Simulated assay, not measured.
Amino acid sequence: MTQTVLIAGAHGQVGQHVTAILGESDHEGRAMVRDDDQVEEMESQGADKTVVADLTEDVSHAVEGCDAIVFAAGSGGDDVYGVDRDGAINLIETAEEAGVDRFVMLSSMGADDPESGPDSLEDYLTAKAEADEYLRRSGLEYTIVRPGELTNESGVGTIEVGDDIGLDAGDIPREDVARTLVIALEHDALVGETFEILSGDEPIEEALETIAAN
């Protein structure tokens, strides 16, 4: 079924891959960016439509008419509680008010236990954990994807998936994370699931089917 999908954080590194992948699909990808000067760039990367909105402000105009949301936004460490937590919560609440059903969250490995990670990441992981928990308690049909360390290598289309892989177990290309988010979006059996991913040997579709079957 064709869906109108809002990509929050479309101009970010994962978000650009999500935009391109959706641009090659039957779905309508609506790229959400913060600045007007990013609009043309996103449309050149495959966005069917681009909307300017700030996660820390009113985003109702961005969400209107959407069937699903992929949250790929991130503060880059500048304002983790304002963007990674409160910005996500703002979008979740707006999605509920607008009647959006599906929400796929890009989280992070280690969000289950922020204090166990590096001190430099504790605030970030705490913000992610609190956003994830808010999503779980919402009325949205959610999936939470938690990758390990991200790299800019080309994606290979294969991953390892689990629920307790370990924060230092490896890394994964951003392109493979983006493809996982898009495939999860289309997988009804993944509603209500939270899982971790790293580079691995199993094709993404097959790996996610394993999660869905459990």
Results as ranks from 00 to 15, higher is better:
residue 195 F to P: 04
residue 147 P to I: 01
residue 158 T to V: 12
residue 150 L to K: 02
residue 169 A to N: 09
residue 129 A to Y: 11
residue 138 S to D: 12
residue 132 D to V: 13
residue 169 A to T: 07
residue 129 A to G: 10
residue 182 V to G: 00
residue 144 I to F: 01
residue 189 A to V: 06
residue 149 E to P: 05
residue 188 D to R: 11
residue 150 L to V: 03
residue 125 L to K: 00
residue 176 D to F: 04
residue 171 D to R: 10
residue 181 L to K: 07
residue 195 F to I: 08
residue 170 G to P: 06
residue 191 V to G: 01
residue 130 E to T: 14
residue 139 G to F: 10
residue 195 F to S: 01
residue 160 E to S: 10
residue 133 E to Y: 15
residue 174 R to T: 10
residue 139 G to P: 08
residue 148 G to M: 07
residue 153 E to P: 01
residue 195 F to D: 05
residue 146 R to T: 08
residue 159 I to M: 09
residue 164 D to Y: 10
residue 184 A to E: 00
residue 159 I to K: 01
residue 173 P to Q: 06
residue 139 G to L: 13
residue 140 L to I: 11
residue 125 L to I: 11
residue 127 A to D: 07
residue 196 E to K: 05
residue 127 A to M: 06
residue 124 Y to R: 01
residue 166 G to V: 15
residue 190 L to F: 02
residue 181 L to F: 09
residue 159 I to T: 03
residue 175 E to Y: 02
residue 154 S to W: 01
residue 161 V to D: 04
residue 127 A to W: 06
residue 194 T to S: 12
residue 126 T to H: 09
residue 148 G to F: 00
residue 164 D to N: 15
residue 180 T to V: 13
residue 162 G to V: 05
residue 136 R to Y: 12
residue 168 D to Y: 15
residue 175 E to G: 03
residue 140 L to C: 13
residue 141 E to L: 06
residue 149 E to T: 13
residue 170 G to Y: 08
residue 175 E to P: 03
residue 167 L to K: 01
residue 189 A to H: 04
residue 170 G to D: 09
residue 146 R to Q: 10
residue 173 P to L: 01
residue 193 E to G: 07
residue 198 L to Y: 09
residue 186 E to T: 06
residue 159 I to E: 03
residue 150 L to I: 04
residue 148 G to Q: 03
residue 126 T to L: 14
residue 123 D to E: 15
residue 178 A to Y: 03
residue 191 V to I: 10
residue 189 A to R: 06
residue 193 E to H: 09
residue 176 D to Y: 11
residue 174 R to E: 04
residue 136 R to A: 14
residue 171 D to Y: 12
residue 154 S to G: 13
residue 150 L to G: 00
residue 176 D to T: 05
residue 136 R to F: 15
residue 166 G to P: 01
residue 151 T to N: 07
residue 197 I to P: 02
residue 188 D to W: 04
residue 159 I to A: 07
residue 138 S to T: 13
residue 189 A to I: 02
residue 151 T to R: 10
residue 154 S to R: 15
residue 151 T to K: 02
residue 130 E to M: 13
residue 197 I to T: 06
residue 136 R to V: 15
residue 180 T to P: 00
residue 150 L to D: 05
residue 195 F to R: 06
residue 151 T to V: 13
residue 125 L to P: 04
residue 182 V to P: 00
residue 147 P to E: 10
residue 143 T to Y: 05
residue 147 P to R: 03
residue 160 E to C: 06
residue 154 S to C: 02
residue 149 E to M: 12
residue 146 R to P: 06
residue 124 Y to F: 13
residue 149 E to S: 11
residue 148 G to V: 01
residue 140 L to Y: 02
residue 184 A to C: 11
residue 160 E to M: 07
